[in-house]
Design a protein around this nucleic acid. Structure first.
Length: 206
DNA sequence: AGCACGATTAACT
DNA sequence: GTTAATCGTGCTC
């Protein structure tokens, strides 16, 4: 039953760092024109609260950050560097601004569409970056605010790999990427999680 | 109104 | 390793 596989709001309504780690191995699903595009989440980062000077919420409540102050289980999609979209999931109770940045997925469904959008790149590197996966799954600002827990949502998460099947030995923890002018301790806080997967050089099931 | 910079990527030396 | 591409956001004047 695919619907029982979908993560509910309770999953996101927890400490952001725990959610970021437990999102590893889950399956991100994008429904577009009736097609399922999907991939296993392999890299995440936690951004947590106004005191986290790496988090957009350091600026307080603004039009852009308001989604992070809302209910957990919604998509926060923002535009940066004049050309790239980034996908995040809002976490923690309403009123506390926090989100998990999805930094990489391993595509597993909709391979033809994804590979066409990522021309020139070899599998499994079609979506190994926060902007790359948004391009691969056609995620833009129109999906900002999407409720991941609503029926018929264009974006949601499925259980994917069972949590107890992911050994801590396969999860690499490090500081977050790209925070050049962010002061310590936020610059080095170990809130990045990477799932080390064994991957063939060819997509499965083709 | 103007400015500096960004949770990046691809292409280059 | 270095750099251009390219524009929304938040801050200062």
């Amino acid at each position: 039953m695919a619907d029982m596989d979908r993560l509910s709001r309770d999953f996101f309504d927890r400490n952001t760092v725990i959610v970021a780690k437990e999102l590893l191995g889950k399956r991100l699903v994008r429904v577009e024109d009736g097609n399922r595009l999907a991939g296993y989440i392999v890299e995440t980062e936690a951004y947590r609260g106004e005191e986290d000077l790496g988090c957009h919420a350091r600026a307080g409540l603004t039009q852009r950050t308001s989604i992070m102050y809302g209910s957990p289980g919604h998509a926060y999609v923002y535009f940066t560097y004049g050309m790239h979209w980034m996908l995040n999931f809002v976490t923690e109770p309403k009123g506390f601004p926090a989100a998990v940045l999805i930094r990489g997925i391993l595509p597993c469904e909709g391979m033809d569409i994804i590979s066409n959008r990522r021309k020139g790149q070899p599998f499994p590197r079609w979506a190994d970056g926060p902007a790359k996966l948004c391009q691969a799954l056609n995620i833009t600002g129109s999906l900002n605010g999407t409720d991941l827990c609503a029926p018929n949502s264009a974006l949601f998460i499925e259980n994917g790999l069972p949590q107890d099947k992911i050994s801590n030995n396969h999860v690499k923890v490090s500081s977050r990427i790209g925070l050049f002018s962010v002061p310590e301790p936020w610059k080095s806080i170990p809130w990045r999680f990477v799932l080390q997967m064994e991957v063939n050089n060819e997509p499965a099931g083709r």
